[in-house]
Amino acid sequence: MIELRLVFGAVLAIAMISAAIMAIWPGRSRAIAILAAGAVSLFASIMFLLLAAPDVAMTEAAIGSGLTTFLFFFVLGRVRGRKDD
């Protein structure tokens, strides 16, 4: 019987890798790429909990998934108007 942690970890790993691939796929809009990077940070924060690191999970969730996405969207709002790439 495969243990539950391993199954949960495998699901998280698949979700993380597909979100990362979606973030760098060339055709999509920039907002979706930024949101996918935020999702990668969120899944990584849950995996930190599985790896017995609660401090790091809190920090990654607050800083990596929260503040980084805010910074990106601030700058994206300033440079809107050109839709190249």
Binding site: I24, R30, A33, A37, S41, F72, L76, D85
Partner: peptide, 11 residues
């Protein structure tokens, strides 16, 4: 695109 490069670095 510079913004996408920065997203790559974050990942």
């Amino acid at each position: 695109d510079i913004l996408r490069m920065i997203v790559g670095f974050t990942i």
